[in-house]
Amino acid sequence: MKKTVIALATLLASAAYAQSSVTFSGAVDMSIEKSGSGQPVKLESGRSSNTFFRIAGVEDLGGGLKANFFIQTVVSADTGFSSSVGNDGSFVGLSGGFGAINVGKSLNPIFLQALAYTANNTKGVSGFATLGDGLGDQPFLAGDKGTLNNGGVTVNNQITYSTPNFSGFSATVGYAPSEVKGNKNHQVVTVQYANGPLMVALGHGTRPRSLVLDATNATNVPDEMMSQVGVAYDFGVARATFLFQKDRNYADSNAYSLGVTVPVSTGSIWASFDTRQLANDESVKVLQLGYKHFLSKRTHLYANFGTRDKSWDTPTNTMTTDKRVTGYGFGINHTF
């Protein structure tokens, strides 16, 4: 009888240590939009959230220690295109009372921090988003031109460590070796305080030249250094956000975003006003508005509007002055 009890206890302990789970989730987002006068009407994917699928898992190793993995792929719902599986993150790690450490391709901590301090998490009409490559500031990069710099959405070969929460305070450190002789390494530190309705954040990071080279492998592109400060407060009837960035890429450039999100019975209304000083001492100003109408917990309709006082010339990849551009779009988003 004693042997039976011991064997049963051993079996139960083994089962407890082996507890694990794997989840499959994601979202599909599609909109129809017109990004400016003279521009064609387009179907666009990812204007309320990314279209993506995610496979994630966690295993309880016992004693508060857990192993986890994460693979997320962003795709274009209108064309089905994806550059690669895991393009939005593919890492493995451990977590416990010490915090969490992950190794692989993951979001840049300074970009992840900024998401919490922008209205609608940077999304909106294509070309008007808050966080992007930076208007007039990164001529070597194409993509979604944002008023504020994203600092690089994801980082390859990155090791991140996140501390536990100490009475609202937490921090994340990111490091990625360049893996190229003579090129500097990526490094970033973010600190945040979140307690009740108040959130405050500080972040500083570098994105080395090797990560911002264009196809011509230009050698005069300097290391990118960026610092940011964020403040958010939830008043109940509305949540206000503020994000300031000091961008030292090419030339010192200051940018900020003021945002507000107002919950309503059927969804939410959001607005954002952004401004950025360009390299030639001019500035660009962007106003965005949006509305989300929730049909269920997983499905919502949305409308986006954006206007800026300068335009982006795609063929030359430069800003043109004194030419206001207005865009709008309507879409549907479903999460699973």
Rank of each mutant, 00 (worst) to 15 (best):
T307H: 00
T79R: 11
G236I: 06
V28I: 14
D88P: 02
S227Q: 14
F70G: 00
N333E: 05
S227Y: 10
R324E: 01
R239M: 07
F140D: 13
T321E: 13
V229W: 05
V5H: 14
N304W: 06
K181Q: 00
F273G: 00
D144A: 09
H204S: 09
D274A: 08
A303F: 12
K42S: 13
Q158P: 01
K105P: 03
T326Y: 09
R239Q: 07
G152R: 02
T130Q: 15
A13L: 13
A116S: 14
G127K: 01
K292D: 14
Q245N: 00
G290M: 03
A251I: 09
F81S: 15
P208V: 09
D214R: 14
S257W: 04
G134Y: 04
S95P: 00
V260K: 05
L65C: 01
A100Q: 13
S37L: 10
Q288M: 12
Y256T: 09
Q72N: 11
V155I: 15
A119S: 11
I101V: 15
E44C: 07
G132H: 06
G136Q: 04
A201N: 09
N50Q: 10
T261V: 14
D133P: 03
S257V: 09
S170G: 12
P263S: 05
V284D: 10
A13D: 13
G196S: 13
G46V: 01
R298W: 06
S82N: 08
I32H: 10
A194Y: 12
V191Q: 09
Q228E: 15
T316Y: 05
N150M: 12
V200P: 02
V153A: 08
T154C: 04
D223H: 11
K34C: 10
T320Y: 01
D274C: 08
A171R: 11
A15D: 09
G168Q: 15
L12R: 03
G96K: 03
R54G: 03
K184L: 00
L12F: 04
N254K: 13
R209S: 11
R209V: 04
A100K: 12
F244T: 08
T326Q: 12
G329K: 03
Q187D: 11
L148V: 07
E179R: 06
T275G: 01
G306I: 01
T307R: 03
A201I: 06
V74W: 01
S167A: 15
V92Y: 05
A218W: 06
N121Y: 10
V74M: 03
V221P: 01
G236T: 07
Y117W: 11
F330I: 15
N304C: 08
G46M: 02
L131D: 12
L148H: 02
K34V: 10
M319D: 01
N165E: 14
V125S: 08
S268V: 05
I71L: 14
I101Q: 04
N150D: 15
N102R: 02
V237A: 10
Q245F: 00
A129M: 01
A18S: 05
T206S: 10
G97D: 15
D214Q: 13
V284P: 07
A114G: 09
V173Q: 03
R47F: 01
S37D: 08
S257K: 04
M319F: 05
N157W: 04
A27V: 12
K184G: 02
F305Q: 13
